[in-house]
């Protein structure tokens, strides 16, 4: 028996995976199941079922919050119930869970998938290669296929009330020897940038940390979250890593992305590629960012950012 098993440690991502798996199931056949952490209450279970999940498996006792434990539980459910397509949310945790599940089931695995589809009966998975320059479509030839899909890769479908079953199971967990001593939540973070409707991205064109308030003022006028390129988080540490946009940072899908002082190297632009409209400001008219922009303004950001801010403020009055 074939079937699709979805897992994410984040409920909302699990629903995205389920939304797409509903279509996938018609090609793959079999059931659509989800592995959930903790016993789902009626509301949580109802949400999963309304997005197409037939069966929700929950580990008893609770599965400890550890990638290796998640991976062992997923592998056991897949083996026992014959799920051959395993779809996981490609968060940091999800990526390593996917890799470990694949290793233990002898499966091929593609992480950070941006899309998937069935063509002539073959499941094709898209992911970026060469730092984001290209998108590879690949098939997985192993009997079990493991795919970790990016958060937001699949739109949330329309929920339709449906009945499903909740099945408890007792995973055999082998301790991996890694102990969590402390978990400290990151403080003071606003909307995650990957969920922002409007995004203002800032790059090395910003000459001084003192100038960040100027950018914040424009972001406020645009009701945008601030994202940035890698050097601003890693080399200069002006912004927390959670604001890095790009291949090793966040992939964002805003309605509007305004790019300021960013040259536009592929490792960054891969993170804004899904924006509906991109407006870019750079003083170098040959900057590659203009090739990915809908609107490009060749100008000095220090001249135009304050002026644009005023114009945006005037609009919202």
């Amino acid at each position: 028996m074939a079937g699709v098993l979805v897992f994410s440690e984040k409920d909302d991502i699990a629903l995205e995976l389920a939304s797409r798996s509903k279509e996938l199931k018609t090609s793959v056949g079999g059931k659509l199941a989800a592995l959930v952490l903790g016993r789902p209450d009626a509301e949580r279970a109802g949400r999963l079922f309304s997005y197409g999940v037939d069966t929700a498996y929950h580990g008893q006792p609770d599965i400890p919050s550890d990638s290796a434990a998640f991976a062992q539980a997923i592998a056991q459910v897949a083996k026992e119930h014959g799920f051959d397509t395993i779809l996981i949310g490609s968060t940091r945790t999800g990526k390593e869970v996917a890799a470990m599940v694949a290793q233990s089931l002898g499966a091929g695995c593609i992480t950070d998938a941006t899309d998937l589809r069935v063509k002539d009966g073959i499941l094709l998975v898209d992911r970026y290669t060469f730092g984001g320059s290209t998108v590879a479509s690949a098939s997985i030839s192993s009997a079990v296929k493991v795919i970790a899909a990016m958060p937001k890769a699949f739109p949330l479908g329309a929920p339709a009330p449906s009945q499903g079953e909740i099945v408890a199971f007792a995973p055999q967990l082998i301790p991996t020897g890694t102990n969590v001593l402390q978990r400290q939540d990151r403080q003071g973070e606003s909307t995650p940038i990957e969920e922002a409707e409007a995004l203002l991205c800032i790059g090395r064109g910003l000459a001084n940390q003192k100038d960040i308030p100027m950018i914040e003022a424009m972001a406020k006028a645009l009701k945008a979250e601030i994202g940035c390129t890698r050097p601003l988080t890693h080399d200069w540490q002006w912004f927390p890593e959670s604001r890095e946009v790009g291949l090793s940072g966040k992939k964002c899908k805003p309605t509007l992305c305004v790019s300021v002082g960013i040259s536009g190297q592929i490792q960054h632009t891969v993170g804004i590629r899904s924006a509906r409209i991109i407006a870019a400001i750079n003083k170098d008219k040959n900057a590659p960012i203009f090739k990915t922009a809908d609107y490009g303004l060749v100008a000095d950001l220090y001249d135009v950012v304050p002026r644009l801010t005023k114009k945006f403020q005037a609009l919202s009055k």
Partner: peptide, 19 residues
């Protein structure tokens, strides 16, 4: 276990209006 069927640069469908 992974066979790449195609590997191409995505088509950029941007307006490219430069001011």
């Amino acid at each position: 276990q992974i066979s790449v069927v195609s590997n191409l640069a995505p088509v950029e469908q941007r307006k490219g209006i430069i001011l």
